[in-house]
Amino acid sequence: MATMTMIQALNNAMDTMLAKDPDVLIFGEDVGYFGGVFRATDGLQKKHGITRCFDAPIAESGIVAAAIGMAAYGLRPVIEIQFADYIYPGYDQIVSEAARLRYRSAGDFTAPLTLRSPYGGGIFGGQTHSQSPEALFTHVAGLKTVIPSNPYDAKGLLISAIEDDDPVIFFEPKRLYSGRFDGWHEKPVETWSAHPASDVPEGYYNVPLGKAAIAREGQAVTVLAYGTMVHVALAAAEFAKIDAEVIDLRTLVPLDIETIVASVNKTGRCVVVHEATRTSGFGAELSALVQEHCFWKLEAPIERVAGWDTPYPHAFEWEYFPGPKRVAAALTRTLEA
């Protein structure tokens, strides 16, 4: 065991897989010698060799497409898109190609690639370093979408993603890279070492895709969250003094519907939270599923707390970010309904 931040755990996951499987290789903008703008691949080129971890031209479409070609050959490429906000030039290759290759060739060709990308707000990155575009990927048949919330899961889920035979979009909450940010932006951020999930085994292990975790058990209301918002939800429950059950989805597609349904059937209430814009966000899907599966057990309307339907504005970071106060207000409303 070692104590790791999320960025160290991700680095360690890639280190582990480079050592374990010669077909794993990593490329992306600035990931080689430099080790990535967030240091996720720090030291990997030096340790594993230049053809295992190298810089790519600034061409997201090319990065995704090259990974598809490599995956079709039989490799397991792990690519980094420097910020989720810069994924769009690669969108056609992801949606029309990677996602459908297995289907259109009836399994003749597959694209077992992993696309890692930092996402989410809270860093004064304005509209081009703060977005949460997960719903653009969960909407696409053939893709898996994974979002960890702590170092232990980050490593285990990334290893599962790399070993998965389908393309996986792996969004990393950059606000959690170096500390456990819970949305109280005026307070100092808790270090990861203070959190049990920073105990990370150094060798190989995995956290299976498609399994949620219960971040906090409770009876009063179920909160569905992922990424940074797991910690915001925990802070909100504490702030509102509400016995919420916080579910960390970990994988959005395929979704762990059993865990969600069992929890909502128990609590009878549900609040869905995400940083992404509200309209057509993943919360809409969650809300519809809960309604379909738990309608007769629901005692209050399902609430959604999400980013406003605007681009992410530089000057209004904390009005935009759905922090603990907004989540707490929704929890309270749900209990009063």
Binding site: G126, Q127, T128, H129, P313, H314, A315, F316
Partner: peptide
């Protein structure tokens, strides 16, 4: 990104 910002605080520096 101040009150006189012509981009109204919406863009990075």
């Amino acid at each position: 990104s101040n009150a006189a910002d012509p981009n109204r605080g919406r863009q990075m520096p």
